[in-house]
Amino acid sequence: MADGQSDDTADGQAEKSIDEPLAEHDAAAAPPRATVVTETAIVAGPELKKKDFVERVVTRSGLKKRDAKLAAEAALAVLGEAIANGEELNLPPLGKLKINRRKAQANGMIYVCRLRRPDLGNVAAKEPLADPAEDG
């Protein structure tokens, strides 16, 4: 610098470059740099309608269609109420659902949720929720 001044800051310490590692830390132990994600993957598949859902429940459970429809509609109603109340759902094998945001619209509510699914290979080995002998 001009007039014989050094590259020192006001407190008398020399300025260090941001890119230089600090002397008290080992450069090899420095944490990795953060990466900014600019794109997200949107996964969209075919839509599952309630009629098809009930048919799958009938096939999987062996229940009569009218019984399966009543049970599926009741389960969907309970799930809808829990989501509307802002409850966190932990329902294996579906997964863990957490509501991150919600916004009121003219025709209903928009919910932004996070669903964490378990490894389906491990879920199949677990015990069923009900005994097959406990038919009501």
Score class of each variant (00 low, 15 high):
A23W: 00
A23T: 07
A23Q: 11
A23D: 10
A23N: 04
A23Y: 00
A23V: 09
A23F: 04
E24Y: 03
E24T: 04
H25P: 03
H25M: 06
H25K: 06
H25I: 08
H25W: 05
H25N: 11
D26E: 10
D26A: 09
D26G: 05
D26Q: 08
D26F: 00
D26M: 06
A27F: 02
A27C: 03
A27L: 08
A27G: 02
A27T: 05
A27P: 07
A28M: 06
A28N: 10
A28K: 06
A29L: 13
A29R: 10
A29G: 07
A30Y: 05
A30M: 07
A30E: 12
A30C: 07
P31E: 04
P32S: 07
R33G: 11
R33I: 07
R33Q: 10
R33E: 14
R33K: 14
R33T: 07
A34N: 13
A34H: 11
T35C: 05
T35V: 13
T35R: 01
T35D: 05
T35M: 07
T35K: 14
V36R: 15
V36P: 04
V36L: 15
V36S: 09
V36N: 08
V36H: 11
V36T: 12
V36W: 04
V37I: 10
V37N: 00
V37E: 07
V37T: 07
V37H: 03
T38W: 00
T38E: 01
T38F: 04
T38K: 06
E39S: 15
E39T: 14
E39R: 15
E39D: 13
T40S: 14
T40D: 10
A41F: 10
A41E: 11
A41P: 01
A41N: 09
I42A: 12
I42V: 15
I42F: 09
I42M: 00
I42G: 00
I42E: 13
V43W: 03
V43Q: 11
V43I: 15
V43L: 15
A44G: 12
A44R: 14
A44P: 00
A44N: 12
G45W: 01
G45F: 02
G45E: 06
G45L: 10
G45T: 11
G45A: 11
G45P: 02
G45I: 04
P46M: 06
P46A: 14
P46G: 11
P46H: 06
P46N: 08
P46K: 13
E47C: 10
E47Q: 12
E47R: 13
E47S: 09
L48I: 15
K49M: 12
K49V: 14
K49S: 14
K49D: 14
K49A: 12
K49R: 14
K50F: 09
K50P: 10
K50G: 09
K50V: 15
K50T: 15
K51Q: 13
K51T: 13
K51N: 04
K51Y: 05
K51C: 08
K51E: 13
D52H: 06
D52C: 08
D52E: 08
D52I: 04
D52T: 02
F53H: 00
F53M: 07
F53G: 01
F53S: 01
V54I: 14
V54S: 01
V54E: 01
V54N: 02
V54Q: 01
